[in-house]
Amino acid sequence: MRSAPKPGHLYACYALVMRYLPALALTLLAGCNSLPRDPDGTLDRIRQQHRLTVGWVDGASPPPVVRRFLEEVARDTHAAIILRSGAAEPLLAQVRDGQIDLLIGPFEKDSPWAGDVAFGPPLARGAGEIEIKAAARNGENRWIMLAERAARTVSQEARAE
């Protein structure tokens, strides 16, 4: 028969936890800051090279919120923006392959490209199910986080998402 833990033992456990709790909390806080990292180092590269490649889908005039969004991203990364424009499909393929850091344009809410690239929250809404939003390379989580934060900073729609 197993005996119940004595109050003394419980106090010892409690004391042990309380003793190391601040160190554990500090470690976690430090970890909070360093994770996530990008598997292909997108954000580090942009910050080192001060250059950010942005695609814009042809045939649509960007609303003012897109300009504010890009300014916010450029400020966070200290990078100059190199703009490319073209048809959506080839540009999306370039985002998927890491040739473009960010692609902005009107996309369907449930875009068939959702599994191939990471869409951010909507910057603005178009007609019907169309949203103006940014797409980044899948898995570059720190870079995606930065783009999401910038979108939420400048857009009410992104904050409401």
Partner: peptide
């Protein structure tokens, strides 16, 4: 070689990585 995307959410006014 699928790269999983884990983005962020806003919790209590803070941007937090969903991984946490």
């Amino acid at each position: 070689t699928e790269h999983a995307t884990v983005g962020s959410i806003v919790l209590f006014g803070q941007h937090i990585w969903l991984g946490w």
